[in-house]
Simulated scan of single mutants.
Amino acid sequence: MSIPFAEVIGDPIAQSKSPAIHGFWLERLGIEAAYRRFHVTAGDLRDYLDERRGNADWRGCNVTMPHKQAIIPLLDRVDAMAAQIGAVNTVVREHGALVGYNTDAPGFLEPLRRDLAQTHLFRMARILGTGGAARAIVAALADAGAVLVLAGRDPAKARAILDTLDPGGEHHAVPLSHFAEPTDFAFDDREGCLDLVINASPLGMTGQPPLPFDFSHVPPRSICYDIVTAPARTPFLNEASRRGYRTVDGLSMLIGQADHAFRRFFGAHPPRGEDEELRRRLKA
């Protein structure tokens, strides 16, 4: 007997933790459905969507590298937020149409909600990376009123992202190497400031080069956030903790964005009261 299913696609895809997250929630809620990995190369993306469109059991898919931008012209419709960001990480079939969403932005913001609900003298975020996830983070934080410093290997690409996503903002684009060298900049250390330092790149991930970063760039009382999920505690986060900074790991964003996708795929709210058990499973 066939059952409803969703999946995550990418190239590579074996490392994805999404099946463990969605599988945990389906199990806890007693929903008879499945969530799988499916390896899709760039050349196979169109054929994949054409085949899944005709499968009545397919509820949609999450989209990982390198397809978050390439998939957009292949869809019937794209949500306004995803269109603004220029990246889709969730595809849902709605009344026969394939609709693209971006759940990275709300997923990223989820662990920062209490901070962003407060009033601040100034908000600044230093973001390292210019990929699809970084675009979502830029859009989310610009909308939250933060001044952004976006660092990438190609500063021109970083500048283009800022100008596209928040053309009226007073943001700054710098080379990634800017944060690798020490600085003696005198930071505003008033308690009413909210400072974020975010690794939105794959650097520091298992199998990737280390993140080149000097902690003299971290203002007092900053929140250090790394979206890398393998390992969950990256060298960047470990050093931030050692220095006394508050940290947010990549599982926070991963679980948060999966929450929004799960609701669209399966029409139910995940049991978020069991996040600690889910985290234990993901780290096992």
Rank of each mutant, 00 (worst) to 15 (best):
I3Y: 11
I3V: 15
P4N: 10
A6R: 07
E7G: 10
A14I: 10
P19M: 05
A20V: 13
L29C: 06
G30N: 07
R37M: 11
R37Q: 13
F38Q: 15
A42F: 01
G43C: 04
D44T: 11
D44I: 05
L49F: 14
R53Q: 04
N55W: 08
N55A: 15
A56T: 06
D57K: 11
D57V: 11
R59H: 06
Q69V: 13
Q69Y: 04
P73V: 00
L74E: 13
L74Q: 15
V78D: 12
A87T: 11
A87K: 06
A87Q: 10
E94A: 12
H95Y: 11
Y101E: 07
Y101M: 12
D104H: 00
A105R: 01
L109D: 05
L116M: 12
F122T: 12
R123V: 14
M124Q: 15
A125E: 13
A136M: 09
A136G: 10
A139G: 09
L150G: 06
A151H: 01
G152A: 03
P155K: 06
I161W: 09
I161S: 07
T164P: 08
L165A: 00
D166S: 15
P167L: 10
A173D: 02
L176F: 04
L176Y: 01
L196H: 06
V197E: 00
V197D: 00
N199M: 07
A200G: 09
P210I: 00
D214E: 10
V218S: 11
P220A: 09
R221N: 14
S222T: 13
I223N: 07
T229Y: 15
P235R: 01
P235W: 00
E239Q: 15
A240C: 09
A240R: 06
G244E: 01
G244S: 00
D249I: 01
D249M: 02
G250C: 02
L251C: 08
D259W: 10
A268M: 05
A268W: 02
P270K: 03
P270L: 04
E276H: 09
R280Y: 06
L282C: 00
A284R: 15
